[in-house]
Write a protein that binds this DNA or RNA. Structure first.
Lengths: 334, 334
DNA sequence: CTGAAAGCGCTTACAG
DNA sequence: CTGAAAGCGCTTACAG
């Protein structure tokens, strides 16, 4: 059963397709179509269940009402929760989302941009990887809205929404220091993106401001895509060779691996050994003892991302560089 | 800067757009285009960075290379992990995914089907809600591939992939009974979908087979979309008014709420009180003591879903009813 | 070996 | 108040 076209509706209603099109697009009044015709056509549309072919519409108008969402990995709860919020807000405005995971891989990211391009998505929401700057600038040069989130790209001048990782990290370390901790470790990843380097900088600055010498042996950079077993081995080495009394994990999955290690080596989180995880996770609230964490305001991030995208979309002008930095919140538990 | 069209390429190469089209679509040989022309055109395409407009292609050919994925909630880790696996596998075959969360709401689900329809998606992968049967059957009647997963719909005859919830639930309860538990509770949700009712049936059958009377006071059905605080209050009531010695949580988020309650009322999971969660979660491995869980084989589910979709897509024939039931695994921890 | 032309289903400037 | 027609960028049956 072929689906109905505007022509079928026009035939049934004994009017031209122009008239039907005007009615569908709410331009009936503006084009002064008579009430009688409007009613007749609307009735037929309703009865027949006709839905305009969006593909044809896109081809003609040049926009698709689709927003391309590129994230690192949809199965990471930070991204899946943001995705859900963005999805909700976008749908309310009539935009659909095509998403894809970049796995933090430049080549895959470039390929995805090409694929989105050939699908004529109206706008892009990207948690970018390094090396994608030029492709994004190309998009911007073509006047396509692009909003970055989670991690900014210094060489890309467009809207950006992200948490203040530097301060949250600084604050976390400071809270350790105030508890009298001296040997504070940082377990982070080796991906070279702003939101990760800022956490390292916050760590360094807090130590410096409190006159604690930076010791590179206390900073472990875990390779991004490796097995959890290997990650756990590296963390275990840190715990067993360095006499640390506190550790900040720069991502929640690293914290989870770290907590598993602690369990394995039977080291308790408590007065003499404290832990903070960057990005909260349900497991931390449940852990015994409960684990402190830095919470990013997901709702606020999603809200601002959509706000920026929609404003770009309506303006049809060149994107302006507008950074929205939302505060992250350190939740002290236990 | 407008993007290039096939016409631009044809002009540059001094050939017709027909020729360019044949070359792009790998039909050059078949249409016996000369080597010289092929090379010339391919060079120009490469140099210019031309990408065919997929929208136009879709309009012409009637297919979009897009698969619509409808799940309950992308922020639920079961779905986000499945989505990631499906995404990976689909991309490898040249299909893109448009996804959307139904929130287990029939009206939203119907709306989404309409939206996917007007976008001419080539196939649907759906974790369905009740009440959507007719819409899906309509799709099938139009020869559009639809594969269901996670929960089956008795009135829909098409491919389905899901775990054997009945057995996993039965097994869980049996393991309690073998430990000598007598008062075994089930905390489940009130959503009326197969994958949830099967868990209840498994619970009932296991009790029956072991001659334990079914006590409806031990079964708590939590309202689907309510606040966690309310959920916790209901679970707390169960724990405090019934003298239970084991509990099966029918979903992982219910288990998490339940564990929070246990923590609050300072009741320990241990020899005299055991817990199993349906669907594993990182928090369970980390919990003290570790929490047993039923694991669904995500990889296997995703693999089979894609296999069914692709086979429907290539056959272009009416979908056959093919149920693939994969076993879920009870992981006993601690 | 290659091309002119129809047509997919819309929107919209133009005409009356 | 309404319609005929061009055109968005492709694919493909047909012709030569």
């Amino acid at each position: 059963m072929k689906s109905l076209s505007i022509k079928d509706i026009a035939t049934k209603a004994n009017v031209s397709i122009t008239t039907v099109s005007f009615i569908i697009n709410g331009k009936a009044k503006e084009k002064s179509i008579s009430e009688a015709v409007i009613e007749k056509v609307e009735k037929i549309i309703k009865e027949s269940g006709y839905k305009p072919n969006q593909i044809a519409r896109s081809l003609r108008t040049g926009n698709s009402n689709i927003i391309g969402l590129m994230i690192e990995d949809i199965s990471n709860s930070f991204f899946s929760r943001i995705a859900r919020l963005i999805e909700d807000k976008a749908y309310k405005k009539g935009y659909k989302i095509i998403y894809s995971s970049t796995e933090n891989n430049v080549d895959k990211a470039k390929e995805l941009i090409n694929m989105f391009k050939s699908r004529k998505v109206d706008a892009y929401i990207i948690a970018p990887t390094k090396g994608i700057e030029e492709d994004i600038n190309q998009l911007l040069a073509d006047n396509t809205p692009v909003i970055l989130f989670d991690r900014n790209l210094p060489d890309v001048k467009t809207g950006y929404v992200g948490a203040d990782h530097f301060h949250a990290s600084y604050q976390s370390i400071e809270s350790f220091i105030k508890q009298g901790k001296k040997k504070i470790a940082l377990v982070t990843t080796d991906i070279n993106v702003q939101q990760i380097t800022e956490r390292l900088e916050g760590y360094q600055k807090a130590l410096e401001d409190h006159k604690i010498a930076y010791d590179e042996n206390l900073v472990v950079k875990i390779h991004f895509n490796q097995d959890e077993a290997e990650t756990m081995a590296q963390i275990k080495t840190l715990f067993q060779t360095q006499n640390i009394d506190a550790v900040l994990f720069a991502t929640n999955y690293l914290a989870i691996s770290g907590l598993k290690v602690l369990k394995e080596i039977d080291r308790k989180v408590g007065d003499d050994f404290d832990v903070i995880a960057y990005d909260d996770h349900e497991a931390f609230e449940l852990h015994t003892p409960r684990i402190s964490a830095v919470q990013q305001p997901l709702e606020e991030i999603a809200e601002n991302v959509i706000k920026l995208v929609l404003s770009q979309l309506s303006k049809k002008t060149k994107a302006e560089q507008l950074e929205i930095i939302v505060p992250a919140k350190l939740i002290i538990r236990s």
